[in-house]
């Protein structure tokens, strides 16, 4: 039984259809990549899975339960989490307050924050600093740490390397590997950075013009001509 199973999902912004046909499945503990050019529907797919884009058809099953009509907060409470593109941290709250909001209502919240600070020691000296005053890379780390504070079992990462310096990309990559290994997390990663995806994902889907139904073998990802063909830009 797949942890996440999506069949024939369609989504639209108002009357403009964005996702035409999404078919994918993700097993427990898997690290799956989604590759696609700008404007192909990657971010919309993440938002549709989390429930804040209107879906117009199809099914989304999580833990074998149909969730397409559930509100976002109910999906989050089932263990799903999204680190959105552009981080979307709370810029006027301090780093500590950002993390605290991530664990509110959970038992052992302070322990969880300490745990996150061990994973991301870069955040420790910044606890009293406002989120908006952090660098892009630090904000990305904060966004991931806050998402993890909530003890999710399934994480969607939307272009976490966008505008982030290489040293922090390595740090994020190492932590994600460690977390997945230690906590058996299931992760879906949307990226344009091929090396980042190759270093983490065990399977990669391609999305093109709102259609996702094809897996690309990992060995073909380094071949740009093959990737272009998978993405629908082949000659």
């Amino acid at each position: 039984m797949a942890l996440l199973e999506i069949q024939d999902l369609k989504a639209a912004y108002g009357h403009v259809p964005i996702l035409h046909k999404i078919d994918m499945h993700v097993e427990q503990g898997e690290f799956v990549g989604v590759l696609g050019h700008n404007g192909m529907g990657k971010t919309t797919l993440m938002r549709a899975i989390m429930g804040f884009v209107t879906t117009t058809g199809g099914n989304i099953k999580f833990q074998d339960k149909e969730i397409r009509r559930l509100p976002t907060y109910r999906r989050a409470r089932m263990g799903m989490s999204l680190v959105p593109q552009g981080r979307e941290i709370f810029p006027n709250l301090t780093v500590l307050e950002n993390l605290t909001v991530g664990v509110l209502g959970k038992k052992g919240s302070l322990d969880r924050i300490d745990e996150m600070l061990e994973f991301f020691p870069r955040l420790s000296p910044l606890l009293d600093r406002r989120g908006g005053a952090l660098s892009g890379g630090e904000q990305q780390i904060l966004a991931i740490a806050r998402c993890l504070c909530n003890h999710p079992s399934f994480i969607l990462l939307d272009e976490p390397t966008e505008g982030v310096q290489p040293s922090i990309i390595h740090e994020i990559s190492d932590v994600l590997k460690e977390l997945q290994a230690k906590q058996n997390l299931t992760i879906v990663l949307v990226e344009q950075n091929l090396d980042f995806i190759l270093g983490l994902a065990s399977r990669v889907y391609t999305i093109s013009r709102g259609v996702l139904d094809t897996e690309i073998p990992l060995e073909n990802i380094k071949d740009s001509a093959m990737v272009a063909e998978y993405l629908g830009f082949g000659t």
Binding site: M50, F52, P71, T72, Y73, A76, R77, S81, L82, P84, E88, I89, F90, P91, N92, L93, E97, T100, V101, G102, L104, G105, R146, N150
Partner: peptide, 24 residues
């Protein structure tokens, strides 16, 4: 309180707060 911190998070970014599992 915890309630107040969530309220401030909602002021800052409703969508993000919803994503953290709060019924905004």
């Amino acid at each position: 309180s915890k309630f107040g911190r969530v309220a401030i998070s909602i002021r800052e970014n409703e969508v993000r707060t919803g994503l953290l599992g709060y019924d905004v």
